[in-house]
Write a protein that binds this DNA or RNA. Structure first.
Lengths: 204, 204
DNA sequence: CCCGGCATCCACCGATCGGTTGATGTCGTG
DNA sequence: CACGACATCAACCGATCGGTGGATGCCGGG
């Protein structure tokens, strides 16, 4: 029985590359390709693959959401993306591994097999990032409300405007922001926005 | 005589995908692969390709720098990247075209041929972005000094600290920032930092 | 059950910021 | 050469922000 593989990536060229790198292996078979998260979920239900190779940033349904939906339905999910942010969300959603796209093909092949065996595969740089994330249990992790406030501030809102938008008092906005500063280890709103972008907390 | 092609991309998987998409064409030949800008320049001098497929974000030498070095030495450069920012810098550096990685392979093949013929190929979304960039000759384009100030502000500097860092007066810092606000169409430093990140003006 | 995180609110103060207006000099391009 | 973009500086004012030091209530994990 060959290892059944589903590829989910919005770039046709990357899908071609993955086919080229993995299709040649005698013990693997690419049974399908998806261009976004929703399609990946549908195809996984239909094709019952053993392993799903999943990009995270895709149009339509997010990769992390797709992982969450796939979680427990059978296939193991190996994340293959360009960025080493999003590690924690992906693993929390149920990913079995996290590789970066600059990985050489043979490492990718080994990772797919290892994932199928039930191992958890992390790219070296990803492992380091994960460790540093976990070292600060609360720090760096913004609450929902804090993120909402920060997003408004990044959009140019004053404290007063953000308060009106969220139906809370200006004092609460200030408190939330102070917490944000402490968590991101910055002193003001401008550097908070910068740090949030660096950590991938604000959209991109 | 077949069309000689050089691929420059730091992701092995993408290179495989490009080989798969282009290598099958009878009138094309992939003569080399580079994993960063410097290597691309070296290989271009050695292999004399007709067209270079160039990613922009690569470790070591930047894609734009590589294009600048290649400019006028023979090969035409077709940019193939994930982001629709960096269009203007790439074209100014001498690129003959700008495609996005979500393009279907057949479009890519046509674009390579068109580039070889001397045409300028722009992805639709890229064309739109370019137009909106050009509509504001000055707007959106930050001067060197303005960018320095904004970078310091993003790092948490107050106006006074930024002034000390740059050996100018606080008043000058304020003026620079006001110009930044006008160009980015924002009201304060926080949203300026946010907008700069969205436009890819601050590192990445 | 208690502690910590979260969300909400209040008051006060000094520091900082943004807006405005105006000025000088350089530089590159048309 | 004239024009615009750039870089530099000044003074003033009101608005906003960040810091401090609280307070309350809810909830979930150990």
């Amino acid at each position: 029985m060959r290892l059944r593989l589903l590829i989910a990536d919005d770039h046709p060229i990357v899908r071609d590359g993955l086919r080229a790198a993995l299709g040649g292996e005698p013990d693997m078979e690419v049974v399908g390709e998806a261009a976004d998260g929703a399609q990946a979920v549908r195809l996984a239900a239909e094709l019952r693959p053993d392993v799903v190779l999943m990009d995270l940033r895709m149009p339509g349904m997010d990769g992390v959401s797709a992982i969450r939906e796939l979680s427990g339905t059978g296939p193991r999910v190996l994340v293959l993306t360009t960025f080493d942010t999003d590690v924690l969300p992906a693993l929390e959603a149920g990913a079995s591994g996290y590789l970066l796209k600059d990985a050489p093909p043979d490492e990718l092949v080994r990772a797919v097999r290892a994932t199928h065996e039930g191992e958890t595969v992390l790219a070296p740089s990803v492992a380091g990032r994960l460790a540093s994330d976990l070292r600060r249990p609360t720090r760096g992790r913004l609450s929902k409300r804090e993120l909402e406030v920060l997003r408004l501030v990044a959009g140019g809102a004053t404290n007063k405007e953000a308060a009106a938008e969220l139906f809370i008092s200006e004092a609460s906005v200030k408190t939330h922001l102070l917490h944000v500063y402490a968590k991101l280890d910055v002193r003001d709103r401008a550097s908070a926005v910068a740090e949030a972008y660096r950590r991938g907390l604000l959209n991109g």
